[in-house]
Write a protein that binds this DNA or RNA. Structure first.
Lengths: 206, 206
DNA sequence: ATAAAATCATACTGTACGGTCTAGTTTGAT
DNA sequence: ATCAAACTAGACCGTACAGTATGATTTTAT
C-alpha cells in the first residue's frame, strides 16, 4: 500500500490529462466518458474508480488548469522610476497578457467556462477569482509602484486598471472567441504599443 | 394558396421563436427538437417541414436575432461641438452599450456563439460582422464628428475605439459571462462615468 | 361539398451516452 | 507461492435524442 498512492496518482493524472484534452478540444457535452477512458488508455471501470462522474472530472480538470495558470503567471515586482520605464513595463505586461490569453488552449478553456457557467457556476467563480484577478493584480501592482515613485497620478484605481486590460481583451474576444481560426490572429506589437501609448495618457502626470 | 404563405410564415415564426427561447435558455446541445416542437405548440412533423434540421434552425434563429439587434442599435448622428457635449454623448453611448450587452438574453446569445463557433464558424463571422462592428462604427462615427469639430485629436483611430469599448467590455465579460447571476450585476453610472473621464484624456486636446 | 394541402399525435428507428456490472487478468507486497 | 488490490475488456441498462414514418384530423381553396 506504500506504493499505491503514487501509482494511483499517476493514473489519476493520466485520466485528467485525457479528459482535459478532450474537454478543451470538443467541449464538455461532446466528450464522452468512453472517449476519455480510451484516450487515457484506461478502462471505464478504472475511470469511475478515480472519479465519481463526469462533473467531478470536469471540476478536477479545471482546478488543475487554473493552478497551472497561476504558476505560469507569477508576479514580477519591478518598480518603474520614470515615464520610459513604466511604458516599457506596460508594453511587456501587455504582450505577456496577450500571449497568454491568445493561446489556443487557453481560449478553449474560456469557451468551456463561458458555456458551462450557467450550469456549473463554481467554474466561473473559481476562474474569476484566479485568472482575471491575478492579471488585475499585476496591473494594479505595477501602477501602484509607479505611483509611489511619483511617475503617475491615479484617482480611480479600478477604472484605470480596466482602461489597460479592456482594450487588450477586445482582441481576445473578437479574434479569439468570436473566430474559429486556430491559432487566432494576434495583434501585432505595433497595435499593442498603440494601446499602451494611449493608456499612458490616462495616467501620466503632464 | 394565396393565404398559404402568410400562414406558413406565421408558423415558421412560431417555431423560430420557441427555438430561440430554448437555445438561449438551455444552449444548443441541450435543447431537443421535441422540446422545441412542444414549446412552439407544433408537431414534430411540422417542424421538420419548415426546417431541414437542428442546425438549420440554429442558423435561422441566429440571423433573426442579429437582425433585430441591428435595428435596435440604430445609428444616432449627433455632432458634439465642445468637450462637454462630447463627454455627454460618450456617457450616453457607454450606458447604451452596457444596457444592451448586459441584457440576460443578449448574454445568452453571446454564450451560444462562443461555445458553438468552433463547430459553426459562420455564427462567429456573422456576429462579428454585425454587432461588434456596429458598435465600433457608432464610436468611430461619434469621434469622427468630434474630430472634424476640432474637439479632439485622433491619431490611431482603431486603438482609440478599443480604448473606449474595451473597458466597458470588461464588465460584460467578468460580470456577465463569467458569472451565473441573472440578471448580472451591472456597473453603476459612476463607474461608467469614470471610464469615460479617463477615456477623454486619451483623446482630448489639452 | 369536396379535394388537396397542412397539421397533429404518436409510434418507431437507430444511435449515443452515462453509468453499472461481470468476469477474467495483471501487479506487487509478503 | 499466494493473496488482495488494481486493472482490463466489454457487455449491459436506461435514457435521451435526431430524424422518419403513419394515419387520423383540420384547414383552405374552389
Amino acid at each position: 500500500m506504500t506504493e499505491l498512492l503514487p501509482r494511483a496518482k499517476a493514473k489519476r493524472d493520466q485520466i485528467r490529462k485525457a479528459a482535459q484534452q478532450l474537454f478543451l478540444e470538443k467541449g464538455f457535452v461532446s466528450s464522452s466518458m468512453d472517449a476519455i477512458a480510451a484516450e487515457a488508455g484506461v478502462s471505464k471501470q478504472t475511470l469511475y474508480s478515480y472519479y465519481s462522474g463526469k462533473e467531478d472530472l470536469l471540476i478536477d480538470v479545471f482546478r488543475r488548469i487554473i493552478h497551472n495558470f497561476s504558476q505560469e503567471f507569477e508576479v514580477s515586482n519591478l518598480t518603474p522610476c520614470n515615464r520610459e520605464e513604466l511604458q516599457e513595463a506596460l508594453i511587456y505586461l501587455a504582450q505577456k497578457i496577450i500571449a497568454c490569453l491568445m493561446q489556443t488552449e487557453y481560449l478553449a478553456l474560456v469557451r468551456l467556462i463561458i458555456s458551462e457557467t450557467p450550469k456549473f457556476p463554481q467554474l466561473g467563480i473559481l476562474f474569476r477569482s484566479t485568472v482575471p484577478e491575478r492579471i488585475m493584480q499585476h496591473v494594479s501592482l505595477l501602477l501602484e509602484q509607479a505611483k509611489t515613485q511619483g511617475v503617475v497620478k491615479i484617482d480611480k484605481e479600478e477604472a484605470v486598471t480596466r482602461m489597460f486590460v479592456g482594450p487588450l481583451i477586445t482582441y481576445v474576444l473578437l479574434d479569439g472567441l468570436f473566430a474559429a481560426e486556430s491559432p487566432p490572429s494576434r495583434p501585432n506589437p505595433k497595435q499593442i504599443e498603440e494601446i499602451v501609448d494611449l493608456f499612458m495618457k490616462t495616467v501620466v502626470i503632464d
